[in-house]
Amino acid sequence: MTLDFSILGTVWPALLRGTTVTISLTSIVLLCATPGGIAVALLRSAPSPTVRTIVRAASWIFRGIPPLLLLFLAFFGLPVVGLTLPPMPSAVVAMTAYMSFYFGEVFHSGLQSVPRGQWQACKALGLSPARTLFRIILPQTIPAALPSYISHATEILKGTALAAAVAVPELTNAAKQVFVVTYRPFEILLAAGAIYAVLDAGLLILQLYGERWAARRRAAR
């Protein structure tokens, strides 16, 4: 069979719609999982050993189970506990849940890079814990955590493809919908791959700038 890329002329609106869903899913998960990750990181260094152990165990479980299974769990499990959500929000719930723990690990090691003495110094200076966190600790954590933060953000982007399994009309799903009717999987999947590559490249350029910025910040310290 010969390849014929003119098929893309007819299917591009579907792929475009899929791309917008992929971008919005990625952004929503990023927006929800970042504070989630900060919360997980803070709980991992909570004063109570019970809390620390529980969060560590939860982190191990959520990072040890395939994301696809967690998507199924949200999709089938939330209605059982009385929360019936459309596909997109249930995908957001599942992806936010596991990405919070991945981000939690990133931010945890970032927080570890700030000496504990600074918390004590801030207390001695009479700063409140929240102010210490936002004005003293996090500004130093961000340069350390930024490179792996952005590489996890590309993981979110690529991970949104899994939402196809729970009927979210994102890019991979949109591509499948059109190639099963046109019988042109090769051309259409290649086009979808190219779109993912462009989106990823955008994040990677951001990472490049972020790493430079972080290196400058570290040098200035």
Partner: peptide
């Protein structure tokens, strides 16, 4: 190039697109 793609897309490619090439 491969690392830019979602794994699911690569699997779809092998499973659905390879038959198009025989």
């Amino acid at each position: 190039a491969i690392r830019l793609l979602p794994a699911l897309l690569v699997l779809f490619f092998v499973f659905y697109a390879m038959p198009q090439l025989g």
